[in-house]
Nucleic acid binder design. Sequence first.
RNA 1: GCCGGGGUAGCUCAAUUGGUAGAGCAGGGGACUGAAAAUCCCCGUGUAGGCGGUUCAAUCCCGUCCCCCGGCA
Length: 316
Amino acid sequence: MVILPCIVGPTGAGKTAAALALAAELPCSVINADSRQVYRDFPRITAQPAPDEASQCPHLLYGYLDIEEKLSAGTYARTAASTIEDVVQTKRTPLLVGGTGLYFRALLEGIAPIPHVPPSLASAWQERCNTEGSLALHALLQDIDPSYAAKVHPHDRQRITRALEVWQATGKTFSWWHNQPLPPSSYSVQKVGITLPLAELEKILQNRIDAMLEQGAVAEAQAALTRCDDPTAPGWSGIGCRELYLYCKKEISLEACKTLWLRNTRAYAKRQLTWFMADSHIHWFAPRQKEEAVEMLLRWIQKTKENTDESIHTLK
RNA sequence: GCCGGGGUAGCUCAAUUGGUAGAGCAGGGGACUGAAAAUCCCCGUGUAGGCGGUUCAAUCCCGUCCCCCGGCA
């Protein structure tokens, strides 16, 4: 079993600071579990660890993707799994840090082994959804895969088209795939959450936006724009990125950009909290208690190591 | 000062030919299996700018005052 401490929480709550506090106590390598911090073009706007932070211990899976590259939960899980193996080889402790709930789930609990669906097929279903409407496709899904259709709302275009494309590409329904047994997890996990009440988090997010702007967020967006002028490119979908895109295109004022940016970030933080609060395994701490969080992780790592050693001795 | 247009939910605005009003966004809650910083669901009583009047009944009609936006002086 790989010992895998995790730090989760909404954006801006101080996950990076907590990770560095743990890194100061034992040799570990931070592995990103955030779907936007993977983009090379937006280190600042997506709040990737700054160079002076990243230099304190190895930081992996940050800023390695091109703006036009799409990352899926399945791909993330495979990449992260092999990255964790690499880290274990170096005798360091892998430390998973991020805010994308689905990525944590895909890696830690597994994800249905659905083969890759050709993008052309996926976009054909999206096209059909646009012309025929999601209700018609939901009705179709009802015939093909009633149990999944019952779970997905008739307006949820993204999930309906996904279920249909998987069915067409593989000949099996989406729920059939979901019912396939998953291999047992090879991780021993302890999750620690860092958060604050939304009202307090909002102030931090406001300040963070101002700081990002002072530190060249506009220039960062402008530079990205020269490389890719397509606002539908995956990298542009990050909050802050798309608002700055509109500002750079002179479609909105800087004031409007900041207002939207804060609003959207706040709403996103709330969605993250909804996801993580539903996970009863997370032990929560306020940012000011990060030393306690570190303390807890260290104790857990120590104990888990002892248990593992014991079971090795028993086997002998 | 005069002439228009307007004052309705936190914001932007509808509808009501007189029977006390509803969308989008924001906000609150929730879902989540390869787009997840995505996608989607549920939640709407608000002195209808103030005060009078007409009326069985006024957000709607009339008077008056206040405020905003244009135009004219």
